[in-house]
Design a protein around this nucleic acid. Structure first.
Length: 108
DNA sequence: AGTAAGGCGGGCA
DNA sequence: GTGCCCGCCTTAC
């Protein structure tokens, strides 16, 4: 309650919640998440929150890609990110998501 | 307290 | 497809 020591900013916590809401086999772009949080211009801030904390397997950060359908970055390496996506049923084509718009969870 | 730099992106030329 | 600039958030000095 009042004695809440936020190890992380509120913005970060919001991001984690969004990532957790993404079901397997689906993906979301940094911009989509930012928009869902009410900050359509904070696309970079979202990616910043993820990369700066490294949520670990608890958060499906590998399900987040660029708005262009590109893989983007990954703390462990974009290659690893692609492997995880393919494992969940998402096909990746040369660092790009196949049928990206059809797999967007935060599509608006 | 204010200022400065960085970062897993996005949009435009 | 590539290169450049921008705006947003957090952290450190």
């Amino acid at each position: 309650m009042t004695n809440e020591k936020r190890k992380h900013s509120k913005f970060e916590q919001e991001v984690w919640e969004m990532l957790k809401k993404i079901p397997s086999g689906k993906v979301a772009s940094y911009l989509d998440i930012a928009k869902a949080m009410g900050r359509p211009l904070a696309s970079r801030a979202v990616g910043n929150a993820i990369g700066k904390n490294s949520f670990a397997p608890e958060i499906p950060c590998h399900r987040v890609v660029c708005s262009s359908g590109k893989i983007g970055g990954y703390a462990k390496g974009a290659s690893e990110k692609i492997q995880l996506l393919e494992k969940e049923g998402i096909k990746v084509k040369k660092g790009r998501i196949a049928d990206f718009e059809s797999k967007r969870h935060f599509l608006k």
